[in-house]
Design a protein around this nucleic acid. Sequence first.
DNA 1: ATGAATATTT
Length: 736
Amino acid sequence: MYGKCGSVADALAVFHAIEHPNSVSWTLIVAAFARNGHYREALGYYRRMVLEGLRPDGAMFVVAIGVCSSSKDLKQGQLLHAMILETRLLEFDIILGTALITMYARCRDLELARKTFDEMGKKTLVTWNALIAGYSRNGDHRGALKIYQDMVSKSPEGMKPDAITFSSALYACTVVGDISQGREIEARTVASGYASDSIVQNALINMYSKCGSLESARKVFDRLKNRDVIAWNTMISGYAKQGAATQALELFQRMGPNDPKPNVVTFIGLLTACTNLEDLEQGRAIHRKVREDGYESDLVIGNVLLNMYTKCSSSLEEARQVFERMRTRDVITWNILIVAYVQYGQAKDALDIFKQMQLENVAPNEITLSNVLSACAVLGAKRQGKAVHALIASGRCKADVVLENSLMNMYNRCGSLDDTVGVFAAIRDKSLVSWSTLIAAYAQHGHSRTGLEHFWELLQEGLAADDVTMVSTLSACSHGGMLKEGVQTFLSMVGDHGLAPDYRHFLCMVDLLSRAGRLEAAENLIHDMPFLPDAVAWTSLLSGCKLHNDTKRAARVADKLFELESEDEHSTVTLLSNVYAEAGRWDDVRKTRNRRAARKNPGCSYIEINDTVHEFVAGDKSHPEEELIAAEIKRLSKQMKDAGYVPDMRMVLHNVKEEEKEQMLCYHSEKLAIAYGLISTPPGTPLHIVKNLRACVDCHAAAKFISRIVGRKIVVRDSTRFHHFENGSCSCKDYW
DNA sequence: ATGAATATTT
């Protein structure tokens, strides 16, 4: 009684009061310890009995094996097994055999479980169930299904499955995705009288919805006489996740007073539905219900709410409120927030969140790190990226290919080809993304031929190219001016690789032809391709026209570009007014500037100093070290003018006085970032700057002068390429 | 002696 009521101390007192405990007394005290989780003590008393010369009987062995199951003590379990064989108990004790099977399965040794099963003479339904569950527990769901099939077809005993068998087998079907086997099992459950068993039928609903057949799931649901809350939840979250979110919300509306009360899991499903529908209003309504029912403090609810607000709202304000109100947070909480900031284009804030997460001692996982790495990539934050690399190398987070690809991407976008190649070389199972990143990295750093060679190498390794590989390879060809190879690669896409070119591939081809001076062909391709050209396509062609001095075509193309919205208005204005000016169309120059002045995205530049990314927006004087920056700019301007620099004021759009225009140029984000980098690092340190848009022409010219004056390398990554400034010149020619 | 479901991030 004491043992079963949870009072081990009382049980022990009684036990010790017994003068000559017999085998039943010993078994009861061992069971009392085991039942209450004291596995060491349980085995201790088992040993004491053996030491006192008493032989354990069948019941004692069952209890002792149970202890080994719970404490996952394989060694002790095997010892017991050997003793049982010695005592020849096994031949006639099915219960012992079954206990051993479960023990081996829980100790993750399926082979021994199977061996024990095979060596048993007689088997009961429970024995079969134990083996099926054992396979599923160890992740071998196909194996579990095989045993289920043997059981119903081949077992000499003619086993009839029960509810336990069915629910285990259905779960295995769910994981494997075997809907046809699931249907056979459904037929059998109905035929053998389990059509009203809630666990079995709920397992069926789950199986059907996870396997993608919501209609079949609904049929089972409708057939049920008594639907418990799990049936409702399974159906609702099935709808929510399988792209039928509207039906999830509709089903919820039909939960009446005679149905079970919705619980946490119900609300999780409903909020998932709102997230997938991007329905902020419904999401808020469910949020209110969650609060009324007192579930708001649940961790998972908090995470789902947070996720819903980041995906449905146009700002992060409500998400932030949910986050602040959460009492407990886990990795998932932080991941949702970090991903949100990266996707909202606030990579700097994402890194701050990551720092806060570390301060609060929440261990990041591979999802956290790959998102942090993409924030580092956006910002060119190599130091922090390297710190993440060190974290991965320390082995505290498992490194999968996805994470290693993120590392490659980070190093590449931070301008370090060597590190990118180094990470690639160390990847054990390289994926297509790894190869594509490698090809793109070589191309971006001026080794297009090497990039193309790696494309051939991956084909030789027997890998099948995909759309992303083709984009990398084609852009390598266009960057390297490899016209023939580019055209061949494009043709082989359809011919050899069976891939249909999408818009990105056509853009590469327009760029390839334009750079190579095949302007006629490029223009024809823009007209003939099965996609509507956007500003990017026309900009490629127009740059080609400028590069190859085709003024007439340039003017015609400019008129097309003039009509379109562009992501980077500032550089579009530069290009267009340049072209119009060369054609002497001064009215159009003015129109271009006036019409587009308002639509400009703010240009901003980043520089990482130590472990902090500093963000600079044109004209913004809010940096804490603003005065020092202004002084540095003043000092530099004077030295630059002495060296022959003339401010290029063509692109200053505002109607202001000349000297003010010059002031505005000085406060372009690139120059602010460079000035700050100069005053915050020791002389000679190379500077790495990232600009969100295309680098401004004047800043480009200024950077050349600065690199010579201060004797430093300056690397600027803008939206299209890397600029390496050194001793008065830049790696790129013909910059407009 | 066997099973115990439904839920969140990329």
